[in-house]
Amino acid sequence: MLKHKKIVLFCVAVVLVLFTFTFFTAVHWIFFLLLFLIWLGLTTWGSFDIRLNYFTKAYCSKPNSISKEIALTFDDGPHEMTEKVLDLLKLFNVKATFFCIGKQIENNPQLFKRIISEGHLVGNHSFSHSENFGFFSSQNVLNEITTTNKLVQQWSGLNMKLFRPPFGVTNPMIAKAISETKHHVIGWNIRSLDTVYEDENTIFERVKNKIKPGGIILMHDTSQKSVNVLERLLLFLKTENYSIVSVDKLLNLSAYEN
């Protein structure tokens, strides 16, 4: 479990040292409380920042890239707005990566088929995208991933190997499920926050100011404001001579299992 395991081992070692000291001198309880708070803070931070690779390895960019390539990703579809996103991508001759929710695929099968038919990449974004996903057992996480994979295989014949956890949350349960499914966890290093901000200019400037080679942009194909920002972003990237590529090409990973 990468950094999480190291932190736990370190904290246990410190507790043992403090406990040993109690045989020789008084050790104030505040030291134990402080250690617990440090552990809790690091664990919470690691759970909500996928870029830290705290519980499981996540690909969030192509480090040290000098080629002006960038990946554009969309979460939470297929949605009625996905059609407008696809129209823009087609107009600019750009291929993107869509992390799809299983329930949304069931609700919008024709849009999902269009994503595939137009040459875009699809990845697993769980089945329910539950707000409680971070509290699911490893078995429930496993069910969410495998159900969506089976659904996509049924509709397209593709067996997805890319997974983006809802909200970018990771924890030991999610890590355990991923170790069984063998998916590649895909994060991001350019977060648009297009589901948080209402002002389109704020969203656009936030993304534009973070653009750099090897980056992975996170957007959502679920609102008109995101569509409007996307159009401006595509024009900007074209002006800056960026090539927009799918995640598998940027990271040199297999998106589907043969």
Results as ranks from 00 to 15, higher is better:
68 K>L: 08
89 L>Y: 08
109 P>M: 12
258 N>Q: 09
200 E>Q: 04
225 K>T: 03
59 Y>C: 04
158 L>D: 02
89 L>P: 07
139 Q>A: 11
7 I>M: 15
198 E>G: 11
87 D>Q: 07
102 G>I: 10
226 S>G: 05
167 F>E: 12
215 G>F: 00
175 A>I: 11
255 A>G: 07
5 K>H: 12
204 F>A: 00
95 K>G: 03
147 T>Q: 11
115 I>G: 06
188 W>A: 03
139 Q>H: 06
8 V>D: 06
69 E>K: 15
103 K>E: 15
1 M>H: 14
128 S>H: 08
240 E>K: 15
56 T>K: 12
251 L>W: 03
43 T>M: 04
60 C>H: 08
192 S>T: 05
4 H>D: 06
179 S>M: 10
12 V>S: 09
40 L>W: 13
129 H>P: 02
21 F>N: 08
100 C>G: 05
246 S>Q: 13
10 F>R: 10
157 G>L: 04
39 W>E: 14
54 Y>G: 02
186 I>R: 03
55 F>L: 06
256 Y>T: 02
86 L>D: 02
82 T>E: 03
107 N>I: 07
42 L>E: 05
159 N>E: 14
51 R>W: 08
50 I>C: 08
43 T>L: 04
67 S>V: 14
36 F>C: 14
250 L>G: 09
196 V>I: 10
201 N>L: 00
91 L>M: 07
141 V>C: 12
9 L>V: 13
164 R>S: 10
65 S>L: 07
39 W>Y: 15
124 N>K: 06
